[in-house]
């Protein structure tokens, strides 16, 4: 191993000895000075995770979160210089992290927070305009075959837990003690303009949007969503998606319009 390889390995392993070949002007133990670098790396990356997952942190407290994040950082240091995406592996880590099991919804709250950061930095796109929809309605026979493109910022999370209510309670919206965390919720995350929005979807909403995202036609996605839940209300779902700018285009994929 070369010098930087040894230095790098020792940064991440608290049990590794200080690398050889380091000196200090006063002959003091270089390990103490090397610890500054080690600390900078670990603390700055834990801070990065704390910035992405503020509600996850609040749910378990700072001491627990930072200690857990420290283990994650040492096992999974970033592979990109773009830190905005660092932590996308944290929810799965939390799921397998035994000390976090008393808070079974923690991983899904973390997933929701990661979706918010992704939406924040996602590509810009204009939401569907009313004119575009009105135009599509002039030829109703073509509606079933239309492809619907979700906004680039859109993310969806179907959870066994009340992820939206839990998250909202940490934004000062509702009391946490009133939330039943074991009530399943589906979260829609989207940023049509500059603000990331989090919306709780009624049942079937995830089927509809996943259908759009995977290339089903409007007719196919609507049929699947209708079949997925007896109370599915297509009008209400489409109204919500339009209101929050969650869709960015309608097109006929194979024909030249």
């Amino acid at each position: 191993m070369n010098d930087q390889a040894l230095f790098a390995a020792a940064l991440l392993d608290p049990d590794a000895p200080c690398p050889d070949g380091l000196t200090t002007w006063n002959g003091s133990d270089p390990a103490r000075r090397f610890a500054v670098y080690r600390n900078n790396v670990i603390v700055s990356l834990i801070d990065a995770l704390a910035d992405t997952f503020p509600v996850t942190l609040e749910l378990v407290g700072e001491a627990f979160f930072r200690a857990m994040a420290g283990i994650f950082v040492r096992r999974t240091p970033p592979r990109s210089t773009l830190l905005v995406d660092y932590g996308s592996g944290l929810p799965t880590f939390i799921e397998r992290f035994e000390p976090a099991h008393p808070v079974p919804y923690l991983a899904d709250v973390a997933r929701l927070e990661m979706l918010r950061v992704r939406a924040f930095h996602a590509a810009d796109a204009d939401p569907l305009t009313l004119d575009q929809i009105a135009q599509a309605l002039t030829d109703p026979e073509r509606l079933p075959a239309l492809r619907v493109t979700p906004h680039p910022s859109l993310g969806i999370l179907s959870s066994r837990y009340a992820v939206v209510a839990l998250w909202a309670a940490h934004q000062g919206l509702g009391a946490l003690s009133d939330v039943d965390p074991y009530c399943p919720e589906t979260a829609l995350v989207v940023r049509a303009g500059l603000e990331v929005q989090v919306i709780a979807l009624p049942p079937g909403g995830d089927t509809l949007i996943t259908g759009f995202a995977t290339g089903l036609t409007l007719g196919e996605a609507a049929a699947q969503a209708t079949a997925s839940h007896e109370d599915f209300d297509l009008t209400a779902h489409l109204t919500r998606l339009l209101r929050f700018g969650a869709l960015s285009s309608l097109s006929l994929p194979t024909e030249i319009c």
Partner: peptide, 10 residues
């Protein structure tokens, strides 16, 4: 560590 945050309220 044990979880000692707002989760205790739920």
């Amino acid at each position: 560590h044990v979880p000692k945050g707002s989760c205790e309220k739920t």
